[in-house]
Amino acid sequence: MIKISYATAIFVFCIGLYTILSKRNLFKTVIGLTIMESGALMLIVTAGYVHGGVPPLIPMEGQAVNPLPHAFTLTAIVIGASDVALALALVIKVHRRYKTVDLDKIRGLKE
């Protein structure tokens, strides 16, 4: 069962990677970045799973799952939200300067 979770994480990560590589629109690049980030977070949380584990809340009945990846994921979510906000702010700035968010057109304008 745990393999399905890993496969989902990798699938989501690859969708995000393909979005970043293939799209020329800067907004779509930022969307790809968030999708990749979700894949990475899924991978971290899955890595903390223990067979038959229960949530790490006291009182526990049985073996708890690893709480450390959960704490790391919380950190990563907040930092991801912050860098997406900064990236979007920069994209808005680019749009004000060039009146477009298309990478090819921006390059064409510069030459």
Binding site: P56, L57, I58, P59, A64, P67, L68, H70, A71, L74, T75
Partner: peptide
């Protein structure tokens, strides 16, 4: 009681 909060 929340171990994740304790770690954070």
């Amino acid at each position: 009681a929340n171990i994740v909060a304790a770690i954070l």
